[in-house]
Design a protein around this nucleic acid. Structure first.
Lengths: 293, 293
DNA sequence: TAGCATGCATAAGGACAGCTTATGCGAGAT
DNA sequence: ATCTCGCATAAGCTGTCCTTATGCATGCTA
């Protein structure tokens, strides 16, 4: 069955509630003439008068009186649903992030965000997939890359820097690590990582001979980090991710010099959502965390 | 709270049901591009994505999935209400009529109409007020008058002719009524009725001296008719209204000549409703009744 | 694995629905 | 008797929303 024009129904609903075209027009932000027009339209579609035009008022006909409550109820339902959805949409912040960043940086700090925004529920989606807000149900994301995505706002978080790290115990086995060359005496957790080449080049070693099993790469830094902490070898890791471990002495970073491949971690979100409260809240919080450092 | 554009909501409802913009577009009789446009609009209004765009399909986001059932329900409610109203509007025929016509002509014949249209409920409103469909909750009306009302369709039913009538008993008291002058020997039920003057003029009597109490006019012919049948005097009545009484001999109409003041009984209804089934049904039935005669 | 088909997004342009403005009319109110 | 209030109507314009045309990504097919 074909519904009559919805605009007309909405006008009818308001007019029935007010018992006045003029008042309904005011509520709807339009002129009395427009209301009159729409009601007439609806009456023609329904095939019956809905209002009796009396001198200083309009009153519902029997047909109109039967129609009105159901329509009102339907509209109330819609209003409620939309309101709930908006609230819902405002109340749940879905973050999609690279697993490494989640494990090593975000999760340990997320508590402070939630404390600051108790009304926001946070949903974390750690996935390695390329970010695409059109096919991921997320509000905001953290990704590494060049920092330019069309239609997206991107804030630089920090560089995907990297430097060798190892456990103090492992370092002690060769009497401490003093020069980059010392590292070559130790097993390397993931010798195939291209970062090694870049870093050694940065410290002037052209073609290092890396020891260690050429086994499959860990893929995620935080797994590699675990192996390094366990003393299985030297890893090349992002310092920002292991602040705690470095401070507590679980890990040491023998050389301040870091390599980088011009990649950064970015906070990104669709331009269209730039001003929604939850996006704004998370963005502000995260950027503050970073600059505080 | 401001509802988002209803058109967009309707499109969303269809799209959610189909899980496809293309199919929704087809159902709504518009193009896929239009659906895409409306959904985007709605998403911006709500402040959240409603669909995830996946390669060969769209699927609801969590927000969309929560919104969808409530919206669907609201639409179902509207559809049902509108359908019920239409049925209702189609199923009840409200006739507004002059009391005289109702009592003397319509009511005795209405049974045959209802037999012919068992699904139609008839509501009779007998009122003397001038007909005005804008302020009376009626579908069709019967009025006397000149036959020209703007925006109305009017069918002539029969003339508001009139002729003297009396009970046979009363006629016998003067040995029968043979000439118009004979009437002047009898009491006249409503001597002030202007019809008398017109009728006597029509039979060549210029200034008849009417006997009888000049009491208040009956106003309605059918009341006057009762008095005449009871033998209280001679009345001037419309033959078409007293067919039964004339046939059965309760009344006699001594002279075939009738007067008229150029007024007719009309069946009238708003042009806009000319083609609704119930109006059509009643019109056809009534006109047939009249021409059959 | 290339080519095709499918489904959605987007841009540009146009049509018409629906709004506004202006005015009229009828009937209470003063 | 005049004013005012509320709705109806006409004319004209505006902006929404739709269409057409195209592109893009992906999954299917041979």
């Amino acid at each position: 069955m074909n519904l009559p024009p919805l605009a007309a129904i909405r006008v009818f609903e308001a007019a029935a509630r007010h018992g006045s075209f003029t008042n309904a027009a005011e509520e709807l932000g339009m002129t009395q003439a427009a209301v009159s027009y729409q009601i007439k339209l609806l009456e023609e579609r329904i095939g019956a008068s809905l209002f009796l035009r009396r001198p200083r008022q309009v009153i519902l006909t029997e047909v109109g009186a039967r129609l009105s409550p159901a329509i009102s109820e339907a509209f109330d339902m819609m209003r409620a649903a939309i309101a709930a959805t908006r609230e819902n949409a405002d109340g749940i912040l879905t973050i999609t992030t690279i697993p490494t960043f989640a494990a090593n940086w975000l999760v340990p700090r997320l508590g402070s965000f939630q404390l600051a925004h108790p009304s926001l529920a946070v949903r974390l989606q750690a996935t390695r997939e390329v970010i695409d807000f059109a096919r991921q149900d997320a509000d905001i994301g953290i990704r590494s890359g060049g920092g330019h995505w069309p239609g997206m706002v991107a804030h630089k978080i920090f560089g995907a820097d990297f430097a060798p790290m190892l456990s103090p115990v492992l370092a002690a086995t060769i009497g401490g690590v003093n020069t980059p060359m010392d590292l070559l005496q130790l097993p390397i957790v993931d010798p195939s990582d291209p970062w090694w080449k870049i870093w050694f080049a940065a410290v002037g070693v052209a073609d290092p001979d890396l020891r260690g099993n050429p086994r499959g790469r860990f893929g995620d830094q935080h797994l590699e980090g675990k192996a390094v902490i366990a003393g299985q070898g030297v890893g090349i890791l992002t310092p920002a991710f292991f602040e705690t471990e470095l401070k507590s002495g679980l890990l040491i970073q023998p050389f301040d010099i870091v390599g980088n491949d011009d990649h950064f971690y970015w906070l990104v979100y669709p331009e269209a959502r730039r001003n929604t409260p939850k996006v704004r809240a998370f963005r502000d919080w995260l950027l503050e965390q970073v600059t505080d450092k």
